[in-house]
Amino acid sequence: MFEAVLSNGSTLKKIFEGIKDLCTDVNFDVSSEGIKLQAMDSSHVSLVSLELHTDVFEQFRCDRDSMTLGLNMKSVTQIFKICGNDDSVTMRAEDEGETLEFTFEKGEDRVSTFELKLMDIDSEHLGIPDTEYQCNVKLPCSEYQRICRDMAGFGDNMTIDCQKGGVTFSVDGEVGKGKIFLKHQPNVEEKHKVIVTVKEGVELDFALRYLNNFAKAAPLSDHVQLGLNSDTPLSVRFDIEDKATLGSLKFFLAPKIKE
């Protein structure tokens, strides 16, 4: 049997909101260590990797070595509309069960339950190497969200140029060119901090459509962390409630290359 209780149900709601537009069906891989999810978008350009450690849950039980629960994202996000912001969530599945039961509670006054039919999803699992990035940028989620939204008005691609001292986001579209520079700002109020760590400068192009999709996970934490290496996928990481010990929602995006 699998049973997990999360007092802060909105965390799961935010996670599903963050990935629903990238993937239609996903597998929840449950083990005694927690919940993992890996899924690619249909065009194999981006990948979602979720890790929820048991520390994020008030109660966590998985009797088997592992369980795979296939979820349709549209249905899950529909179910989570039932979940109020202060509700706790309990997820429960029998060992050979065909459903995942969600219970949303606020105290004992209001209890809603929904049994979701599980799916058999054939998904390709990719090995993602542990990468040390040449450039790491930690910036407020609100800033990331704003940059991606504003830049999307001018073009399809955004160049991220990370150098010692700061990071430049630029777009070159039909109506003209624009750029936003964020200075390395370690000594300001926590919520405004921008930390740019550079071993070697990196400049890469990415599709704004995907970067904007990732921004939907912004409510999960205060800061987002970008990892860049030359000619490799970008990593966009949201730590759950800004605590890596609880887990993270990571996105990977393949770069675009100039002809």
Partner: peptide
């Protein structure tokens, strides 16, 4: 227009 790469050229099936 730059060419969009896919993740399959970076990550291998595990």
């Amino acid at each position: 227009q730059p060419t969009q790469l896919t993740l399959n050229s970076f990550f291998t099936p595990s």
